[in-house]
């Protein structure tokens, strides 16, 4: 059996397990409710803006957004591109990027540690290469997270279209694009979560350690920003949203490459450690 088949079987089971578990269902429902609430809130803010700022034309609004985006991403082309994005979808994109680590830590903390706690992992390591098991676990988690965020985004597209925030084509086109941009970033977070989970045999310790690692990465990012040390900001996966959403293809590719590299590094490290350890 090829390693790819092993990964597929492990990931399939992981998906089935996630969407059947109370934890998976609760997180899905919370994501949907949260997403809908945020959309409605943003739509209400939009409506308020339209009602209060009657003397501001849509062109002026778009120009102001373009300036803001250019300043945020340091690139006029990106500012111009994002100025046409439905505002609600863009806001949801950033919320997704910031909340995905929380979702991943809650979904993935017992990804491997749960199997190791009661040695259930032994049923798998007899039948799969340990590296395949680990990659399958990562893939299962990433697919689960991606499916949850897609469902959440889809609900938002529907709300967005129903409330007339954007035409259906624009909403779905931009919605899909923005959701796809979240994928490489969530892949890195899933890699980190899988690595931490594979180190601990007790799920609660794994959860605490995952939170701690995510927090340390965020603090490192803030230190990097505060003292203008770019290298420090690059360890934080969310840094790459600016690259991935960029209008310049070279920047996008750098962001994508960095995310793939970081994911490979974390999943590779967890596979290596898992292969070497006693179970």
């Amino acid at each position: 059996m090829s390693p790819l088949s092993e990964v597929r079987f492990v990931a399939q089971r992981e998906l089935r397990k996630s969407f059947r578990s109370a934890k998976g269902i609760v997180l899905l429902v919370l994501s949907l409710l949260g997403g809908t609430a945020v959309t409605l809130l943003l739509a209400w803010v939009q409506q308020l803006k339209r009602e209060k700022l009657t003397n501001v034309t849509p062109e002026m609004m778009e120009s102001a957004r373009e300036d803001a985006m250019t300043q945020a991403f340091g690139d006029p082309a990106t500012g111009k591109l994002l100025a046409h994005t439905p505002e609600v979808l863009l806001a949801v994109f950033f919320i997704t990027i910031w909340l995905t680590p929380l979702l991943i830590s809650l979904l993935g903390f017992d990804n491997v540690s749960g199997d190791m706690q009661h040695k259930s992992v032994r049923y798998w390591t007899l039948r799969t290469r340990r590296a395949s098991y680990m990659v399958g676990k990562w893939l299962g988690l990433w697919t689960t997270v991606s499916a949850i965020t897609l469902t959440m985004h889809a609900v938002i597209w529907v709300v967005c279209i129903a409330r007339g925030e954007a035409p259906a084509g624009t909403a779905i086109n931009w919605g899909l694009k923005l959701w796809i941009i979240t994928l490489p970033i969530s892949a890195v977070w899933c890699g980190i979560s899988t690595l931490v989970s594979s180190i601990f045999k007790t799920p609660i310790l794994s959860l605490l350690a995952t939170f701690a690692v995510f927090f340390v990465l965020w603090v490192t990012f803030l230190i990097g920003l505060r003292f203008n040390v770019d290298a420090l900001t690059y360890v934080y996966p969310n840094t790459y949203d600016g690259f991935l959403i960029n209008a310049r293809i070279d920047r996008t590719m750098i962001g994508l490459g960095a995310c793939i590299g970081m994911t490979a590094l974390y999943v590779g490290a967890s596979s290596f450690l898992f292969t070497k350890r006693d179970l």
């Binding site: 578990s21 199997d115 040695k119 259930s120 992992v121 032994r122 049923y123 007899l126």
Partner: peptide
């Protein structure tokens, strides 16, 4: 090779 480990729990779910 088939193995019956002593204390490995079956996946409860």
């Amino acid at each position: 090779i088939g193995v019956l480990p002593q204390d490995a729990l079956l996946p409860g779910a």
